[in-house]
Computed example of a mutant assay.
Amino acid sequence: MKPDPAATGKTSRVFFALWPGARVARRLHELGAEAHAECAGRRTRCETLHLTLAFIGDVSPQRLADLIAVGNCVEATPFTLRLDCLGGWRHNRIVWAGAQICPAPLAGLVERLNGALEAAGFAVERRPFAPHVTLLRKAHTQVSARCVEPIDWRVGGFALVESLQTSAGAHYRTLREWRAGEGEGDRCAGKSG
């Protein structure tokens, strides 16, 4: 078992994400197999499939507590994310499953999360949010972008996750999860109520 980074003083590579249940992960993994047959590359393991909301990077143990406080302040509402397209980015050889339409609750969650991160002194992504799940890395050829049979993912919360790099690839450890309705919302901004 790996030591807790907070106990060792080492930095942790972390991000906020949505994590699919077994049914959605299985279907995404199947879609990854289809994409792999088309363009090869390194498939994302079923147990590591996720949708990144905000990538933070390396942080000290002290800043992990700040990130948990950020998560505590962000309110999430349940929603359904429909992943209905397959695409890729040539510049980094990624193949992904994405959504043609970003649900308003997901866009709001990302906006609130980025606002809370920025208020806490963390750098945030400035590019428009594009909901996607990475299926392949190091694709040998560009995937044919297309619509696919929709995968409806019922989202009921989000997580702060640590990325642990090994020779076998990335492994993830959930540091904290927040379910819909758990956020403290306005109380975190110093408002009463």
Rank of each mutant, 00 (worst) to 15 (best):
A145L: 00
C147R: 15
E111W: 00
R146T: 07
H132E: 05
R112E: 08
R137I: 10
F158I: 00
S163R: 08
Q142H: 07
L113K: 06
A107I: 03
V124I: 13
L109T: 01
D152P: 04
A107R: 08
G121P: 05
L109G: 00
A107N: 03
E118P: 06
L160T: 04
L135Q: 08
G115D: 13
R112P: 00
H140I: 04
T141V: 04
P150Q: 12
R137Y: 10
L109A: 06
E162F: 07
L117Y: 04
E125Q: 10
G121E: 01
T134N: 11
P131D: 08
V155H: 07
F122M: 04
A120K: 04
S163L: 09
W153C: 08
T134D: 09
P131E: 07
E125M: 06
T134M: 08
L164Q: 15
R137E: 11
L136F: 08
R126D: 11
C102W: 01
E125L: 06
A120F: 01
P105V: 00
N114S: 11
G115H: 11
C102M: 05
A120E: 06
V133E: 00
P105T: 05
V155N: 08
E125R: 08
V143G: 12
R112N: 11
E118F: 06
G108A: 10
V155P: 09
A107G: 07
R112D: 11
L109S: 01
Q142F: 02
E118R: 13
G115N: 12
E162W: 09
A123I: 11
P103E: 01
G156D: 15
A119N: 04
V155R: 10
A119K: 13
